[in-house]
Design a protein around this nucleic acid. Sequence first.
DNA 1: CTAGTCGCTTCGATTTCCGAAGTCGCTAAC
DNA 2: GTTAGCGACTTCGGAAATCGAAGCGACTAG
Lengths: 111, 111
Amino acid sequence: MCVKQLTHQQCLGADAALSRAFSLLGKRWTAVVLGTLGTGGPTGFRELSRAVGGISDSVLSDRLTELTQAGLITRTVDAGPPISVTYALSERGAALMPAFEQISTWAQEHL
Amino acid sequence: MCVKQLTHQQCLGADAALSRAFSLLGKRWTAVVLGTLGTGGPTGFRELSRAVGGISDSVLSDRLTELTQAGLITRTVDAGPPISVTYALSERGAALMPAFEQISTWAQEHL
DNA sequence: CTAGTCGCTTCGATTTCCGAAGTCGCTAAC
DNA sequence: GTTAGCGACTTCGGAAATCGAAGCGACTAG
């Protein structure tokens, strides 16, 4: 049984939800991109690339597209000139930050 | 600045810690394996494979090796006969469960 | 003796990721 | 006017990760 005295069914539901979450978060860079937007605030592609560090442009572009489509971030285009694009956490994305802070705290003492 | 009024330095530290955490959790299946051990308790390879669902044997084997080496799970061999092996969360691994519960709750309402 | 299970390993194929180079539109400096 | 740099990406070949299937040895059950 669960470490927290849940019913078997509740455990299955929790596992399925965690699986859905990690079908996104289990990709390299997804959580780091979200976390970086959470700590640094709204920013553009290049600045985000620098803040994340080590990510390729094509993967960053892919992740931003996926996260926008999943509703975790918003993409705002200012036609300028010059064109500028700003990515920011949405409410839904911001709702993940408490969990990421816990993971971050955990990593500070365990990794 | 941070959404939570941290210093710039604290944000950078948090991002670096999150990056370290997700160099592990950002691999396909890692978090789901941990989460499944958290809800289902100690178990063997085959049962864990069934509980996780959809994972290949070679990746499960790889993940279990990595997680054991990282100290997040323990591997206990009973020489039998027949041989049986039990994987369980370590204290360090169990310390991640509150964050995974938050992510699971978040996924139940957002994904 | 046969079939099934456990706890894995191996291997070829597929998918994901990476690094480099590139595009277009803009701005700045000379 | 020219050159260089930047932003916001896209493209592509190669490397790494993942997958699915098949296999192994040791055991148990019928």
